[in-house]
Amino acid sequence: MGRLAAGLLACAPLALLAVTGAAAAPARPYARMAPVDAYLMDRAQEIALARSAAPAAIAKDATVLVLTRTGYATAVTGSNGFVCWVARSFSGAPDWPERWNPKIRAPGCDNPQAVRTVTRIAELRTALTLTGHSDAEIASRIQAALRSKQIPPLAPGAMCYMMSKSAYLTDDGGHDMAHVMFYVPFKDGADWGANLPGSPVFGGNYWYYTPGHQADAAALPPLSVLLVGVGTWSDGTPAGMAK
């Protein structure tokens, strides 16, 4: 469970740091980006997968994004402020061992508070990655967008549904887990009791997966992700570990 949670926290809208001490090396190394086609999906299938992140009562009226060769684009315009989309491995932490894993498909449905900040960060990171920018350039552009309020500060109540039974989140152990995530402007999840023995809450810093990036993270606003498992998939069926 801990290793899977680490993988979940590593590919935003999954977040971007492992639970302390829980991370394990993936079964296969991914040293470089695969051809872009390996990350793309059939449009209709991607829309359906994105919507499977949340219960139908939410997803049916949500905006849906799909990945193109240059970044995410709106495929469906919704009416409830939620945005459903399928994260790829490079949408998240630049130091995640599975960063270039072309199998990763992480459906998430961000609420309106998360859309304004977290979804926009992921969109910007993805677009810059696909257009060949370096990690340093991407970090600089994200910092500039946050400083200028082009991407606004995180609003209270930001969260994400990740309840799809068809997700593939990591090569390490189980491939999926039904959960919801909460984005908080904290350095860590200590105030929530995250990662303590017996706690149902996993958590970590949003920006980086591994230790050793304190200086890089300090240049960005404090942002953590807290994950709580839920008992059903988005279609209402009982949730277990997907294989």
Results as ranks from 00 to 15, higher is better:
G2K: 07
R3S: 10
R3Q: 14
L9I: 04
A10M: 09
C11F: 13
C11K: 13
L16P: 02
L17I: 06
A18Q: 02
A18V: 01
T20G: 12
T20F: 12
T20L: 11
G21Y: 02
G21M: 03
G21E: 03
G21A: 04
A23C: 04
A23E: 03
A24Y: 05
A25D: 15
P26S: 04
P26D: 06
M33W: 07
P35I: 10
P35F: 08
D37Q: 15
A38W: 08
R43C: 04
R43H: 07
R43L: 05
Q45E: 07
A53Q: 03
A59V: 06
D61E: 09
A62C: 00
A62K: 00
A62P: 00
T63R: 00
T63I: 01
T63L: 00
V64E: 01
V66K: 01
R69G: 03
R69A: 05
T70D: 08
T74K: 13
T77L: 09
G78N: 08
S79T: 15
C84M: 09
W85D: 01
A87Y: 09
R88N: 05
S89A: 08
S91G: 14
G92M: 04
P94H: 13
P94A: 15
P97C: 05
P97E: 06
E98F: 00
W100Y: 15
K103Q: 14
I104V: 15
I104M: 10
A106M: 10
G108E: 00
N111S: 01
N111H: 05
V115W: 02
V115Y: 01
V118E: 05
R120E: 14
L124S: 03
R125E: 11
A127P: 05
L128G: 00
D135W: 13
A136Y: 07
A139W: 11
S140G: 11
R141W: 02
A144V: 12
A144H: 13
A145P: 00
A145Q: 05
A145S: 08
L146M: 11
Q150G: 09
P152F: 14
P153W: 07
L154Q: 07
L154S: 09
A155V: 13
A155L: 15
C160D: 12
Y161S: 02
M162W: 01
A167T: 07
T170H: 13
D171R: 07
G173N: 05
G173V: 02
D176T: 15
H179N: 15
Y183Q: 03
P185K: 05
F186E: 09
D188V: 12
G189V: 11
G189H: 04
D191T: 13
D191F: 11
W192H: 08
G193V: 08
A194T: 03
A194S: 11
N195W: 06
G203W: 02
T210K: 14
P211I: 11
P211N: 10
Q214N: 09
Q214G: 04
A215S: 14
A217P: 00
A218M: 11
A219I: 04
L220H: 04
P222I: 08
L223C: 03
L226F: 09
L227E: 06
G229M: 12
V230N: 10
G231H: 02
G231K: 02
S234E: 06
P238Y: 12
A242Q: 12
